[in-house]
């Protein structure tokens, strides 16, 4: 069900990532101001962008769950947020490494882009404990969906608020002028972003397929062990949705 087209998608993702990294190091020129350290930008910014889109996607699936009651949407929302958190960790760490090289500090609290991203990350870091704290699967899915929708709506609002803030330190990449990037840098950045998006979608589908297979196997095992046809709830409390 979720595994359909996964092999092709995986191959495309690998090709895109290898291509993007090759473009970063062999095609895109060194930045005139920052020099070689600017190569981190092709990793850090796509990680952050895809993580933020993943959080929004989690909210969209939350809406779908509340509208239909289909537990698969809850699973999709959960996996999207879970993966986005991993990418957000990557964005924070790579950003810190870049800041250390460029600014001489690992972190600065007077930069709205950094602090707002950290706030979004910490907000979503509450998602798993929230799920885990609710035992009833139905309530867990409903509360998690509401959380995902509210937090998902906060992401673009937060992004716009940061754009309106007058920051002087953090470089602007996405702007109406294209961030003043030369075309070869812009193409490399776009390829890197598409590669990261493909990686996200591949891992999302991969995890969905894995979780779905696990649930079906466990349900089958319980039915065989008990000799019952009726569905029995999962005895182990978990933050992950149950189907």
């Amino acid at each position: 069900m979720f595994g359909r087209g996964l092999k092709t998608l995986s191959l495309i993702t690998v090709a895109l990532i290898v291509g993007a990294f090759a473009m970063v190091f062999f095609y895109a020129p060194n930045d005139a101001d920052q020099g070689f350290i600017q190569k981190i930008f092709y990793l850090h910014v796509p990680l952050a962008i895809v993580a933020l889109f993943g959080f929004v996607a989690g909210g969209v699936y939350g809406i779908k769950y509340l509208r239909t009651g289909d537990r698969l949407h809850d699973l999709r929302s959960y996996v999207a947020i879970h993966l986005s958190l991993i990418l957000a960790v990557g964005a924070l760490v790579t950003g810190s490494i870049w800041a250390r090289g460029s600014w001489g500090v690992w972190w600065t609290w007077d930069e709205p882009t950094l602090v707002s991203f950290l706030i979004v990350f910490l907000l979503y870091a509450c998602y798993q404990p929230l799920r885990f704290s609710i035992e009833d699967p139905e309530r867990q899915a409903r509360y998690a969906a509401v959380f995902a929708i509210i937090a998902g709506a906060f992401v673009p609002l937060n992004f716009m608020a940061v754009r309106m803030a007058e920051s002087l330190v953090h470089p602007r990449v996405l702007s109406t002028t294209g961030g003043s990037m030369p075309s070869d840098m812009r193409i490399t950045f776009l390829v890197s972003t598409v590669a990261m998006a493909c990686l996200f979608i591949t891992l999302w589908k991969y995890e969905l397929a894995s979780k779905h297979a696990t649930f079906r196997l466990r349900a089958l095992k319980r039915r065989l062990a008990d000799g019952e046809d009726a569905w029995t709830p999962n005895p182990r409390r978990s933050a992950a949705p149950t189907l």
Binding site: F21, D31, D33, Q34, G35, F36, I37, K39, I40, L43, H44, L47, I86, V89, G90, V93, T94, I97, W98, R100, G101, S102, L199
Partner: peptide, 22 residues
């Protein structure tokens, strides 16, 4: 801008973090 040998360490660290996460 940092010299290439200095910047290279940071760039390598960032890409290694990504690789490690995956």
């Amino acid at each position: 801008a940092l010299p290439l040998d200095e910047a290279g360490k940071y760039v390598a660290a960032a890409y290694l973090v990504f690789l490690a996460l995956v």
